[in-house]
Simulated assay, not measured.
Amino acid sequence: MSRKNIFAAVGQSKFAAANDREVKVADRPLADATERLNASASPVGSLGRVLNDARQKSLRAEEMERSVRDACAVIELNPQDIEPSFARDRMTGYSPEDLDDSFLASIRSNGQQVPVLVRPHPTQAGRYETAYGHRRIAAARILGRTVRAVVKSMSDDELVVAQGQENVERNGLSFIEKCRFAYVLESRSFTRETISGALSVHKTILSIMVSLIERLPSDVIDAIGPAPSTGRRAWSQLADRLDSTVVLDRVRNVIANPEKFAAAKSSDERFRLLLAVATEKVSAPRKQTWSRADGRSFASLAVSEAKIILSVDRHKHPEIAEVILRRLSALQAELENPENDPMKES
């Protein structure tokens, strides 16, 4: 899909964040990749494919920026008048607390080189809604500056396509962030065609992405974070393991342990820690049996991490089974009595 066709949905004129060639690297992470790659010898093999892909993405990102500059006027807006996109894509970057020091320092020193893209808010007069540029808007709030923006009338479909494509071209979203973005869009009844266009993924992969979010507990994803270096296979492996409630409880216990979980400094490290916890082998259940005086076994007990199983053959030992049932009923009544609360301090 060409860049022109992607943004034709927003209007016949091309658009995306615009700026001059000398935009700083901190604000445009792919800006100088083209020069470095063109200067190098032609690579071969898998490394060549990776570098060529980076070169193409850099060129497309520059085309996106030029197209907005050429097609639309850039105006100054108060960041307090700008709302985030209704479809959250990033797990971080929406608030001032999410910004890293280097990004903020670049905006402070060099100014906002690349305009953001917004639309007039569909329900609030005088306000705007962001298509992309959330981090730049957050930085402007911190620095007390206006935001350089392109204002474009867009439908919901056009906004999410622009939002998704801009991030895809800049490798701005991790795999799990893309999955969440796809899930949010589907939950808002966007068509698979629109979502596929926004993320530049095939419908088969899109189905896998949405399914992962349905399977993975949201609190576990939030605890891990975007994990930018973690891909589909690893997330699928974690989802497979977390289908077990025993494993999920074990993972949540680690998350709740600040001393152990905080030792993993990065998001990818947190993922690897929890995946290791989820895949570690569980010891086999401890088993115990009881026998009559004549040596016949009448009961067995299996104790595992998840449960305790007491087994009695009621056909062979009906009287023992009845005694156990009566004792369990009495124990339940005793535990339900507040006066007999075993956790109550004496």
Rank of each mutant, 00 (worst) to 15 (best):
L216S: 05
Q80K: 15
E169G: 01
L301E: 11
K14D: 06
A71V: 04
A131R: 04
K344V: 03
L335E: 15
V23F: 00
S187N: 14
S283Q: 14
I137E: 13
H315W: 02
R188M: 15
E186C: 01
I324W: 14
D20A: 13
V184K: 13
R252D: 10
M154D: 08
A333G: 04
N167D: 04
P84R: 05
L248P: 03
V254C: 08
A71H: 13
S2L: 03
V254R: 13
V303F: 07
G126H: 09
K14E: 13
K307H: 14
L159I: 08
A140T: 13
R136G: 15
A140Y: 05
I107P: 04
P226Q: 11
D81T: 12
T245W: 00
K344I: 05
L275Y: 11
K57D: 07
R49M: 05
I208Q: 13
R28E: 13
R314T: 14
N52D: 12
R88F: 05
D157Y: 01
G133E: 08
M154F: 07
R148C: 06
L173K: 02
Q124M: 03
K316D: 11
D53Q: 14
P217A: 04
Q332G: 04
L310C: 08
K281N: 03
A71C: 06
E259R: 12
N253A: 12
L104F: 08
S13A: 13
E319L: 04
E214S: 14
V116L: 12
E305D: 15
V220D: 12
P338A: 10
S174D: 00
T34A: 15
S102P: 00
R270M: 09
I205L: 08
T123S: 06
R36K: 07
A9F: 01
R252A: 00
S229E: 08
Q237F: 01
V50K: 09
G197D: 15
A71E: 14
M209W: 02
A17E: 01
E22C: 03
L275T: 12
V210W: 00
L77V: 07
F7C: 09
Q112L: 05
K281E: 12
E62F: 03
S311Y: 00
S266G: 09
V118I: 12
G164H: 04
S102M: 04
P228E: 10
A61N: 09
A61H: 10
V68Y: 15
P258L: 02
R119C: 02
M1R: 12
D98P: 02
Q237D: 12
E339Y: 01
Q124I: 10
S267I: 02
H121C: 11
V201T: 12
G197N: 14
V220C: 05
L30T: 10
E76G: 03
V247G: 11
N110F: 10
P115M: 05
V50W: 02
N171A: 03
D156C: 02
F175R: 06
Q332S: 12
P43M: 00
A293P: 00
A9G: 09
L173S: 06
S95E: 15
